[in-house]
Amino acid sequence: MRVMTWNILVGGQDRLGAILDVVRRERPDVLALQELKGWSAKRVGEVAGELGMTAHLAPSVFGQPVAVLARTALTRTRSITWRLHHAAAVATVGDLTVVSTHLNPFSPERRRREATWLAACFFRTRRKVLIAGDLNSLDPGTDHAEALAVIDQRYQRRHLTPAGTADTRAIRALLDAGFVDVGRGIGATVPTARYREREFGEFRLDYLMASPPLARLTRYVSVRRDEVTDRASDHYPVVASFSDETEQPAG
């Protein structure tokens, strides 16, 4: 199974054609999308149809919708709209539960609470679960001092603890619950070349957090950086493959 997660920046706008070209090129079996501003269930259904997929959209009360798309039928779908700043779209694809989500971009403490709640709600020791999306959190295994130092102070606050250190508590909450960060070491997912003057340092904000039964099947995880993804969003897409048999990375 090939999985892709991507924050496409305020609904894709005039970049949507390039975004869909990347998705067609990567051919994910499961696609988690975030920042679907202005998208309705009808709209995501139309886009899914163009891609040969089915979709479940979770609307957002305060932020932007998120979605799960898949090449096979989605079952037991669920939308979480009130516990999160943005939302979470939950769907079962075969024996896999996929949670596409986008955590609070502004408040480290609220982001920690969101991650803690998601971990308690969805972690399973014997089932395949994947939390995929823009978690807006720094990871606890990286030195973030240099990346934080280059951005404006007002944006630094989004990623600092009250003590002034890099805030990694959201990812730590998921790890402490038992999820595995299968993309550890893949490098930064923001900013892309087109958006380097925005609020990001060289951060990894997009994650694939897998339950142990799924994590054991990980074959590769990579960030897709090229001329198209450089301009398609302010985030790069993350692609992973999960398989019972050895598989070589594609590209």
Rank of each mutant, 00 (worst) to 15 (best):
2 R>Y: 10
7 N>M: 00
7 N>R: 03
10 V>G: 08
12 G>C: 07
14 D>N: 06
15 R>Y: 00
16 L>D: 03
29 D>G: 14
30 V>C: 10
33 L>S: 01
43 R>K: 12
44 V>W: 01
46 E>I: 08
49 G>V: 14
49 G>Q: 14
52 G>T: 06
55 A>V: 08
59 P>N: 04
63 G>D: 03
65 P>S: 07
66 V>F: 02
76 R>S: 15
80 I>P: 08
81 T>Y: 04
86 H>W: 01
87 A>E: 03
93 V>F: 06
99 V>Q: 03
102 H>F: 10
106 F>R: 10
113 R>N: 14
113 R>F: 14
118 L>S: 04
124 R>S: 14
125 T>D: 15
127 R>Y: 05
128 K>Y: 10
128 K>A: 12
133 G>Q: 04
135 L>E: 02
137 S>Y: 08
138 L>I: 11
138 L>F: 05
140 P>C: 05
140 P>T: 08
143 D>C: 12
144 H>D: 09
151 I>P: 01
151 I>Y: 04
155 Y>Q: 10
157 R>Q: 15
162 P>G: 07
164 G>K: 08
172 R>S: 15
173 A>P: 04
176 D>F: 07
178 G>L: 04
181 D>K: 02
188 A>S: 12
190 V>N: 03
193 A>Y: 04
195 Y>K: 02
201 G>V: 01
205 L>D: 03
206 D>P: 06
213 P>Q: 13
214 L>K: 11
216 R>K: 14
220 Y>A: 09
222 S>C: 13
225 R>L: 02
226 D>S: 09
228 V>I: 15
228 V>T: 15
229 T>W: 00
231 R>I: 06
233 S>P: 01
234 D>G: 06
235 H>P: 05
235 H>W: 00
237 P>L: 00
238 V>N: 04
247 E>H: 10
251 G>L: 14
